[in-house]
């Protein structure tokens, strides 16, 4: 029933994906710092190794060796659990993302995807909902007013944008007629969905920006107002889980954006895996660029934008798509 080679290949893929994502997340931190530096006419980190390339390593050493601090009156178990709740679901989502064309290895068809679930898209939506708990519990368990405020904000923001994000994906499913991500990618072989669904793409991009809690939607962390929001009280390794989780999220959501709208691994001339990475990095670059440009939104503006603009637009978009598909037969 279980082919050991299958299991080995799957484990290998899991390991590979994990390693790649962790490395990418780590270097994304460096890339962000460098890029923000350039945007602000600075150099950015350049002390650890040439051009600062060992900076992530130095950061890791620093974070690992820092004191693990728990505030008085914090809920011990939830406090320790929350960072994991934030980071793990983000990595898990990558299991369903196809990052390359299927290969033939040892006489077997090997999909470049950890698991090709037929409800892959739903799994993504489900896991990204679970990630909300990391924010909520982390802030609540800290027993700190800033953390609590941050988690309340985060909760409201994440749940709201979950809806607009979900709705923006409905037309994708309608076009691909499948929840299976490999089939969604397959459906874009000729033409990327961004061409059919520019509005859905924009809504999706805005929503994942908010999902990542990144500027201009970083109000759960808002340093200027509530110190560091829900992870104010965290230090060392646990803080870094929150921190790295955010960058894993960028990679994962970049991968999803590529999958849903940018034709996945499809692309001319270059190897499919490379195309996929180029698309992921393009999305990540866009994120960083936006961070270097836009100011933080106000809380009420953020909520209003989601409920009064994005969600209705997404619904209209679904109706329009449905109408189009019906007309077309």
């Amino acid at each position: 029933m279980f082919d050991p080679i299958d299991i080995a290949i799957t484990l290998g893929k899991i390991l590979l994906v994990f390693m790649v994502i962790m490395t990418m997340a780590a270097y994304l931190v460096l890339a962000e710092r460098k890029l923000l530096g350039y945007i602000q006419d600075r150099i950015g980190p350049n002390r650890v190794g040439p051009f600062g390339i060992w900076q992530p390593l130095a950061d890791a050493i620093k974070l690992f060796t820092k004191e693990d601090f728990k505030p008085a009156g914090a809920d011990k178990w939830l406090f320790y659990l929350a960072p994991a709740m934030a980071a793990i679901p983000a990595i898990m989502i990558f299991a369903v993302i196809p990052f390359g064309a299927p290969l033939t290895l040892f006489g077997r068809q090997v999909t470049m995807q950890v698991s090709d679930l037929n409800v892959g898209l739903l799994l993504f939506v489900a896991f990204s909902s679970i990630a909300v708990y990391g924010v909520a519990l982390g802030g609540w368990a800290s027993n700190s007013k800033y953390a609590l405020l941050g988690s309340i904000r985060g909760l409201a923001q994440l749940i709201s944008y979950e809806i607009s994000m979900g709705l923006s994906l409905v037309p994708v499913v309608m076009l691909a007629r499948s929840f299976q991500l490999s089939e969604i990618v397959g459906a874009q072989e000729g033409c990327w969905f961004i061409v059919y669904q520019p509005l859905a793409f924009i809504i999706f991009m805005i929503s994942i920006l908010a999902e990542c809690k990144r500027v201009p939607f970083d109000i759960p962390e808002a340093e200027g107002e509530i110190v560091a929001g829900y992870h104010t009280e965290y230090s060392g390794m646990r803080f870094s889980l929150f921190f790295v989780g955010e960058y894993i999220n960028i990679v994962v959501l970049g991968g999803l954006a590529a999958t849903f709208f940018l034709g996945g691994w499809h692309g001319p001339f270059l190897p499919p895996v490379l195309w996929f990475f180029i698309k992921v990095l393009a999305v990540a670059f866009l994120f960083i660029w936006i961070r270097g440009t836009l100011p933080r939104m106000r809380y009420d503006q953020l909520m209003m934008f989601c409920w009064k603009v994005l969600t209705p637009l997404a619904l209209l978009n679904i109706l329009a798509t449905a109408w189009f598909i019906l007309l077309k037969g």
């Binding site: 890029l35 350039y38 945007i39 006419d41 600075r42 660029w289 270097g292």
Partner: peptide, 10 residues
């Protein structure tokens, strides 16, 4: 900001 990426850092 795009333009500033290519400026010489101060």
């Amino acid at each position: 900001t795009w333009k500033h990426i290519f400026r010489r850092p101060v």
